[in-house]
Design a protein around this nucleic acid. Structure first.
Length: 753
RNA sequence: AGGACUAUAGCUCAGUUGGUUAGAGCGCUACCUUGACAUGGUAGAGGUCCCCAGUUCGAAUCUGGGUAGUCCUACCA
């Protein structure tokens, strides 16, 4: 009421049209104020008339500016009523005409008391018609918890619209790229609607505003006081005092890429060189929630202050990699007051439940919150958090970092990747056991020392280039290593840390540990293997492990360094640390499509046998006989060449190739390509169950073949689809048909037995 | 209110420009103390790709509408 400078009605409001342009007398203060028409007044609300207080309300401020109304500041910095209102024109200059008079009884009064008093005085004067409940959202201060009152103050502003223009085009023309790209929309929508930026803050911590005032309040701006005196030719007789305000933290932060290199001391040759070398920088990694606050401001400020040799504005960085936020297991944002914050250190080192409770509730201001949080914490982590290690945490973050989405933290994933670290460690243990022998490895483990690498060990691995023969498995894993190297590199290049992590996981666990280590055993444990063959396998074990450690190092720095230090010499490498070792690069010369195809066949046969064991509940310890049937030349060759591998990994006694017309014993069958794998099971087989199992497979294939045939029978498909797609479908159909024929044969045979 | 994003297995998530029998890890089931590892091994079950319509020979994928959720911005005399 004390600061009102007009009454607004809606221009469409027929009730009040005739009053627009007239004045009313503001009660209590006796101020004469105009009635104006402004669409801000809502005809539906209340009387449809609303009083306007431009100095103490955001909306009213806008109305005031639109209608060029004066503004009257009636509050002190304590939010008490002033002795007299300060009256300004809409452009901020002092207003001499409108009175800022405040009745004596309100002067110096606390704001809420004054409000009550004014309502009471309205009532007493017979001016109060009714009091209506009105729900509204009022902003409260974070720190003090009191209602925030907008008011007029002097502040420093940056003309953001002007600065935004080059910053927008830098992203439009690709000088700066967001990853993922979709965040560019967010950036544009912010930059295109940018408001002038208030950069002054009333805090004690920060860069002080470089503005000085003389005793008359006249303002001078320059880099420092001496510069001010020189620039404005002020001698020592003029008293100068610097503005007490400091710069917005984002203003200071926006200087980061160049200020850290020594800007603005460009005359210093070292600073100039640093800027030339390191500016613009490459990649900024940040959360999407500060694209507005920081990223946009950095781009604007840098392009304003930094120019290249031709005067073209420099960007601060070329790529902005935007991460998601880590949320808790229920998807809620982590916050202290909710008590759902997980400290990375606790996941690395572990913490007991008491320590965790103390951490989460120790500094709570509200005791009732503390109780809730401690209950929740006890339920979620009854035993506290166990130690998982740095590498596991880092790997988990990489694996979960798919682009453009938040991460709901999953402790189970962390456990899985801790197990992965353990797996790697044990694989390296197997390699060292194979190279150095049990006694040496165990002695070293007991003493906590490294295994001393002898010349004999090096020679056993072929580290000096001694003659070696590679097994099929050796050639296969070397070929697969090329593949994973290329994959991981590609994913890193695309900022797909999740896919890089997945490729590493898949290769190390399934291919290297799951298959290759097992395939190395028949060679290493066979007394009849030649020295060269053993050297080939040992050398491959060691070299692939060494390269894999370098490949995984960015995501698991510690365990890879530890293992690398042990195996580097065996792999013929040297160097102080894995950190300085070159990153692996795939080499086409080491790719071996034949070896990959052969091993694929081997895996399929072994899996087929294991499948039969699983289905029929035959323990792995019981050796079986295996019959091959209907294979081609490749099948025959592969079976011949890989007898040792097959016997060891599938636990087989005899391998027999069936010829046309041979009597077929009662067997369980699996298909491997065109070939059939048979396990004779006279006496153990349940005829009905086996038939049932086979019928189920046939039914599944029938469905597939029906689908494919429908497709192929559709002229729309055969006319319009690309030939490659059609061929693929035809091939599929033929394959299904072959399989069905074989399975049906098998069903007949079993039924006939 | 305006804008953006998300929806795929019980859970956490992949699925590149439309053509896969829709994948991974965890969890689940059965079996296994085989000389790296039970923080392990082998095999397996589990999906109306939120709903509706459209485009197309063909849609988890593209378009429109709807539902649910998350976030940002603004405002509510």
């Amino acid at each position: 009421m004390l600061g009102d400078t007009c009454v607004a009605v809606n221009p469409e409001d027929s009730r009040y049209k005739h009053l627009v342009g007239k004045d009313v007398m503001l009660p209590l203060v006796g101020r004469r104020i105009p009635i104006i028409a402004d669409e801000y007044a809502d005809m539906e609300k209340g009387t449809g008339c609303v009083k306007i207080t431009p100095a103490h309300d955001f909306n009213d401020y806008e109305v005031g500016k639109r209608n060029e109304l004066p503004m009257i500041n009636v509050l002190t910095f304590n939010a008490d009523i002033r002795e007299e209102g300060q009256t300004f024109n809409f452009d901020g200059t002092l207003n001499e005409e409108m009175s800022g008079f405040i009745p004596e009884k309100y002067r110096g009064m606390e704001r809420f008391a004054a409000r009550k008093e004014i309502v009471a005085d309205f009532d007493a004067a017979g001016l109060l018609v009714e009091i209506v409940e009105n729900d509204m959202v009022i902003p409260y201060g974070d720190r003090g918890g009191v209602v925030i009152e907008p008011m007029l103050t002097d502040q420093w502003y940056v003309d953001a619209k002007t600065m935004a223009k080059p910053a927008i085009s830098a992203v439009e023309n690709g000088d700066i790229e967001f990853v993922p790209k979709s965040y560019e929309n967010m950036y544009f929508s912010w930059m295109n609607n940018i408001q002038d930026w208030c950069i002054s803050r009333q805090l004690w911590w920060g860069h002080r505003i470089p503005a000085w005032y003389d005793d008359q309040g006249k303002v001078y701006v320059a880099q420092n006081e001496a510069a001010v005196r020189e620039k404005y030719k002020l001698d020592a007789s003029v008293n100068l005092s610097q503005d007490n305000d400091v710069l917005d933290t984002w203003f200071s932060s926006a200087l980061w890429t160049f200020a850290t290199q020594g800007w603005p001391n460009l005359d210093d040759p070292e600073v100039a060189k640093r800027l030339a070398d390191f500016h613009p920088s490459d990649v900024l990694v940040t959360g999407f929630d500060i694209i507005f606050f920081w990223v946009a401001r950095m781009i604007m400020m840098t392009m304003h202050f930094c120019k290249d040799g031709n005067g073209k504005p420099q960007v601060p960085f070329k790529t902005v990699y935007v991460t998601g936020l880590i949320r808790d297991e229920t998807g809620a944002k982590m916050s202290k007051s909710k008590g759902n914050v997980l400290d990375p250190i606790d996941m690395i080192d572990g913490i007991d439940i008491d320590g965790l409770l103390e951490k989460r509730t120790g500094s709570m201001m509200q005791p009732k919150d503390a109780e809730k949080i401690s209950k929740r914490t006890k339920k979620e982590f009854p035993e506290g958090i166990s130690a998982h290690g740095t590498d596991a945490l880092r790997f988990t973050l990489a694996a979960l970092a798919s682009t453009g989405r938040d991460i709901s933290w999953d402790m189970k994933r962390l456990e899985g990747y801790r197990n992965f670290c353990n797996k790697i460690w044990n694989a390296s243990r197997y390699v060292m056991l194979s190279v150095a022998g049990d006694d040496v490895v165990e002695a070293a483990a007991e003493n906590g020392t490294k295994i001393v690498i002898t010349d004999a060990m090096k020679a056993a691995c072929g580290a000096g280039g001694e003659e070696a023969v590679l097994s099929l498995a050796d050639r296969w894993i070397i070929s697969r290593l090329q593949f994973v190297e290329a994959e991981v590199t590609r994913h890193f290049d695309n900022y797909r840390f999740d896919l890089a992590a997945q490729a590493l996981y898949e290769f190390i666990w399934n291919e290297y540990c799951g298959w290759y280590l097992e395939l190395s055993k028949p060679v290493l444990w066979d007394e009849n293997s030649s020295v060269e063959a053993k050297r080939g396998t040992l050398g491959t074990l060691v070299r692939v492990l060494e390269a894999t450690m370098r490949l995984a190092h960015p995501i698991m720095p510690f365990i890879t360094e530890e293992i690398w230090q042990q195996v580097k010499v065996l792999a013929g490498k040297d160097g102080e640390t894995i950190m300085l070792a070159p990153y692996p690069e795939a080499q086409d010369a080491f790719r071996d499509a034949d070896a990959e195809a052969d091993i694929k066949w081997l895996q399929d046969v072994i899996t087929a046998v294991r499948n039969i064991r699983g289905e029929k509940n035959i323990p792995p310890s019981k050796p079986l006989d295996l019959l091959f049937k209907n294979g081609g030349d490749d099948d025959f060759r592969r079976a011949e060449e890989n007898q040792t591998f097959l016997k060891k990994l599938a636990q087989l006694d005899n391998l027999t190739w069936m010829n046309e017309g041979d009597e077929e014993p009662m067997s369980v069958t699996q298909l491997v390509g065109d070939m059939e794998v048979l396990i004779p099971m006279a006496g153990f087989i349940d005829k009905d169950k086996e038939v049932e199992r086979l019928i189920k497979s046939v039914e599944k294939l029938d469905k597939e073949i029906e689908r494919v045939n429908n497709k192929l029978g559709n002229p729309g498909f055969t006319d319009k689809a690309p030939p490659a797609v059609i061929d693929k479908e035809k091939e599929k159909a033929a394959g299904f048909a072959r399989d069905i024929t074989k399975l049906k044969d098998q069903i007949e045979k079993i039924k006939a037995l």
